[in-house]
Design a protein around this nucleic acid. Structure first.
Lengths: 156, 156
DNA sequence: TCCGACATAGTAATTATTCTTATATTTTCT
DNA sequence: AGAAAATATAAGAATAATTACTATGTCGGA
């Protein structure tokens, strides 16, 4: 499971997911505001792991009064409740996604595109034993580096 | 292979490594300046994956005229020649290390400590086949999250 | 519908990193 | 060793990225 340049930037976020989102928010006593709904919806339908700035741009037509700060603040809130995932990388601008199912990432060194990747072998490894003395292990994300086909062709 | 709070922040960087560093620099036509030597030495002996700022602090006694910009610039140069590795994470302040042998990381969600971890299963998997259509794969790093023993004890 | 708690917008401030320019240093060539 | 050419550095300024402040607005329960 991966994407490339031909993959559209957006899916439609099924209303089902929005319903689940609202339910989880209610469970966790998070207020359901239009900003949170729209930010979540936009991120859930994105396939390109956008930055906060990108989300802000994409939403500014719909919500002209939205502020970038709200995007950051909302993402932070949703992350702390595990509704949004911040992608691990070495870039200085943070990138975000909704992880409906746990997966890993491949990052193109040239264009910085991030694609999804599933890898069950890793997911099923029990690290807790090995890391017992370190502490309590939660989850592992893999970051694979390479050069995507689009960038290989235009070998600049 | 991991570290915890009891692990000292520094090893001694064997002079052997410094010799290798100089040799590689000469091969790659990188000028060997005192700043580069000291920054590399300090990073090579660090076990805590320091930030640029931390390196700057640690070196400022030895080299009072060193500038933070030089630390960033030097790290950037060394990274582009594969002599230094920028650690993948979700933090906004970048962290660095010298990877004498390829390894992965465990990050404590509470104190942000980063420890090393070897994971042969990952290293020996050939991803290239699976990702053939995506492009050319280079390397994979795992980022494991959890809570380190020190933070678990002081369950704040 | 009204109240209290929390979220937002707009602006300002921090933090992190990179750029600019003049000077200094390294390397290479002699 | 000495000098020229090329590159690195320091200092301060600039930019980029993220977060804080505060007054106002809105959500959701009574």
């Amino acid at each position: 499971m991966y994407e490339n340049d031909h993959t559209p930037i957006r899916n439609e976020a099924p209303e089902e997911y929005m319903q689940i989102f609202e339910d989880v928010c209610r469970q966790k006593k998070l207020r359901i505001t239009p900003q949170r709904l729209e930010i979540y919806r936009e991120l859930a339908r994105a396939t390109d792991h956008p930055t906060a700035e990108m989300l802000y741009q994409r939403l500014s037509t719909k919500m002209p009064s939205l502020s970038l700060d709200t995007v950051y603040r909302t993402l932070g809130t949703l992350i702390s409740h595990d509704l949004v995932h911040k992608v691990e990388s070495t870039q200085n601008q943070a990138r975000f996604e909704v992880q409906h199912i746990h997966h890993h990432h491949v990052i193109c060194r040239k264009c910085n595109a991030i694609a999804d990747l599933t890898w069950n072998l890793v997911d099923h490894t029990n690290l807790q034993d090995e890391l017992h003395a370190w502490g309590k292990v939660e989850r592992a994300h893999m970051v694979v580096y390479g050069t995507c086909v689009a960038c290989r062709v235009s070998k600049e």
